[in-house]
Amino acid sequence: MTSAQMVAAARARIEEVETTDLIAQLDNPDLVIVDIRDIRERQRTGAIPGSVHAPRGMIEFWVDPESPYFKDVFAQGEKRFVFHCASGWRSALTVATLQDMGFAAAHLREGFSTWEAQGGPVEQIGS
């Protein structure tokens, strides 16, 4: 299976959120946006204000309450989690994996790539 096939299979079974729809929900206190991009990507292009940074390499461990690396932010079961990366590929795979773990989440279909162009606010991240 190719990586493109893996992404397509993931997208076929997860919830995808359009950029404009997520922008419209930014003030929702029940929404948690999770940025899985590398810290260097965030420093280079900025981030969605208020988003939680959870590097792709650690996300399964941070979400799993039985893991020694568990992060409390993921214990908010009443919140809606939307994950994103740069283009929507990594976040699609991530959300499919989290869904397999029993963690409900969606992902930003086009990732951060269209965020600013579609009117989404961006905060700069220090180095």
Rank of each mutant, 00 (worst) to 15 (best):
G46L: 04
N28E: 03
M1Y: 09
V82Q: 02
V63S: 03
V95G: 00
D27M: 11
M101N: 08
E110M: 12
D72G: 13
S3M: 15
F103H: 05
A54V: 04
R90N: 06
V34N: 00
N28S: 08
D64K: 11
V17Y: 00
A47E: 07
A92K: 02
G88M: 04
R42A: 07
T19S: 05
V122H: 05
T2G: 11
D64C: 13
S127R: 14
R90S: 06
F70N: 10
R37L: 04
A24D: 08
E15W: 04
F74E: 00
T19W: 01
H84K: 06
D21Y: 06
N28H: 03
M101Y: 02
A86P: 06
E78K: 13
W89I: 11
V7S: 06
G102Q: 05
P121E: 12
G50Y: 08
H107R: 08
L98S: 02
A12R: 09
P65C: 09
D100G: 14
A9N: 15
D27K: 14
T45H: 12
L26K: 05
T97S: 15
V7Y: 05
G77Y: 13
K79Y: 04
G119M: 07
C85N: 02
A9P: 03
P29M: 10
S113F: 04
S67T: 06
R56L: 12
A47D: 09
G50N: 11
Q5A: 15
F103S: 04
F70K: 08
A75H: 07
G126I: 06
D27E: 13
A12L: 09
K71R: 15
V82Y: 00
N28R: 10
I125L: 07
R13F: 02
V17H: 01
M101Q: 12
F103L: 08
E15K: 15
G126T: 13
A104Q: 12
E41M: 08
W89T: 10
I36S: 01
L22E: 00
R13A: 12
Q43T: 10
A92H: 02
T20Q: 12
S91P: 01
G57M: 09
E116R: 14
A104E: 13
H107C: 10
V17D: 00
T20D: 11
R11H: 01
M6L: 15
Q99N: 12
E66K: 15
A106L: 05
E116K: 15
E110V: 10
I23E: 03
Q76M: 11
S127C: 10
L26W: 01
P55C: 10
L93N: 03
A75K: 11
A4R: 14
V95E: 00
R56T: 02
E78N: 14
V63A: 08
G46H: 03
R40N: 14
S87R: 13
P49W: 05
A10T: 02
H107D: 06
A12W: 04
L22K: 02
I33M: 09
H84C: 10
N28G: 05
D27T: 12
T114Q: 14
R42M: 09
L108V: 09
E18G: 13
Q99K: 15
G46S: 06
A47Y: 00
